[in-house]
Amino acid sequence: MKSLSYDVKKCLGCKSCEIACGLAHSLTQDLFKAVKEEKLSLPRKNVYAVKGKNFPLSCRHCDDAKCVTACMSGCLVYDQDKGMVMHDESRCVGCWMCVMVCPYGAIRPDLKTKIPLRCDKCKDKDEPACVKACPTGAIIWKETL
């Protein structure tokens, strides 16, 4: 099972990962068309700058995920095999309980669609878009135990 980690020393805070993330989750997959989509695809990753260092932040798919316990609609399930919190958007009602309890503030409430957005590790692709987009190699995608 692979997961994301970050070499903070290498992160320039260029936010290429944010753009790549938004684009990867857009309908058209084309930057100039994507920004005009009716439901704008928001990045599930944000880079925070603190004391001169940059920290990319997104869902870590905790195995004791607080969001899963808090979810009342049953749309969040932790998938042991994939090592991921799975989100069934069709069941989600946008109650924001998951946002309320996420210790990392890694779930982004999309108020327009009433759907909380989170990293899905670009599930259909072999490598997340943020990893590909990072110009300095600050985003590490590797096997974890």
Partner: peptide, 20 residues
């Protein structure tokens, strides 16, 4: 407005594993 988890990394109990 941009306050977030990275601001409290040094203060919380569980030390971060995703930032190296």
């Amino acid at each position: 407005d941009d306050f977030g988890c990275p601001d409290i990394l040094d203060l919380v109990k569980d030390k971060e594993k995703v930032y190296v």
